[in-house]
């Protein structure tokens, strides 16, 4: 059992404070949804947790089983067990997904024996064309293929916690179902903890949140069970502003 704990997290981008004190605790196997309008700071939260350049932490802490994530570089956070599924996965020309996964597994001191089979199996589970893993990362991929590629990597790398930054944006309904279902399965199979950032409840048709947090203007203004998302569908964010 692992715990990802975020306490009083404040951060700025280009001199503007975006996160104004976030408190969240996610345990293994739990799915926490973070919902909020554009500009609430949801993507900033995922970037700061992962250590993306350009964000300055002003205060607070992020710990994984007590280890200070903010004190270590991005790649070590990933090795510690955090995995970011990006809203817009970056194109990396000439670097293939299988080359990248081989380096990622090597850095984790997990061998690459059987990696190809593992990739093929993960790809098969989400209807991802396994031939795409020996093509340049995210180059000339459709929105659905990009998110399937991200989800395939999540399956192979088996992190402790996944941060899904709008997994549901830019992809068709079939791809969303495949990806969301795979993440939901990981919460049972490998006890994956999930922080799912989204605008829309349609993600929850396959990925069932245990707790829903409403984020507005850099703060979590309300937290509750799945019924909170339903209420949001009726009332909109304005009710929480």
């Amino acid at each position: 059992m692992s715990t990802l704990e975020i306490k009083g997290l404040r951060a700025e981008v280009a001199g503007k404070e975006i996160l104004k004190g976030i408190d969240l605790t996610v345990k293994s196997g739990e799915v926490h949804a973070i919902m909020g309008p554009n500009g609430a700071g949801k993507s900033t939260l995922s970037a700061v947790i992962m250590g993306k350049p350009g964000y300055t932490v002003l205060g607070g802490s992020v710990t994984l089983d007590g280890v200070d994530m903010l004190a270590i570089p991005t790649w070590e956070r990933a090795i510690a067990g955090l995995h970011l599924v990006m809203q817009y996965p970056t194109e990396v020309p000439g670097v293939h997904a299988d080359q990248m996964l081989a380096e990622a597994l090597t850095a984790r001191q997990r061998g690459t024996d059987g990696m190809a089979d593992r990739i093929a199996s993960e790809a098969g589970r989400i209807n991802f064309d396994a031939g795409l893993v020996s093509r340049a990362l995210n180059v000339d991929l459709s929105g659905g293929e990009k998110k399937r590629n991200e989800t395939m990597q999540l399956g192979v790398l088996e992190p402790k916690f996944a941060i899904l930054d709008e997994l549901d944006s830019g992809l068709d309904i079939d791809a969303l179902r495949d990806c969301a279902r795979r993440v939901e399965a990981a919460t049972h199979e490998s006890n994956l903890g999930v922080l799912a950032i989204t605008h829309y409840v349609r993600l929850f048709e396959e990925l069932k949140p245990d707790i829903v947090h409403i984020m507005v203007a850099g703060r979590i203004v309300s937290s509750g069970g799945p019924e909170l998302a339903d209420q949001l569908e009726i009332d909109g964010y304005a009710a929480f502003a």
């Binding site: 990933a78 020309p93 380096e103 990622a104 850095a107 790398l157």
Partner: peptide, 21 residues
């Protein structure tokens, strides 16, 4: 950042990118 966020150390990430280039 994309490669590092998968757990790849910076110098290896850079090498992969140059290779890809």
């Amino acid at each position: 950042f994309y490669l590092e966020s998968r757990g790849i150390p910076p110098e290896i990430a850079e090498r992969l990118i140059v290779f890809g280039f």
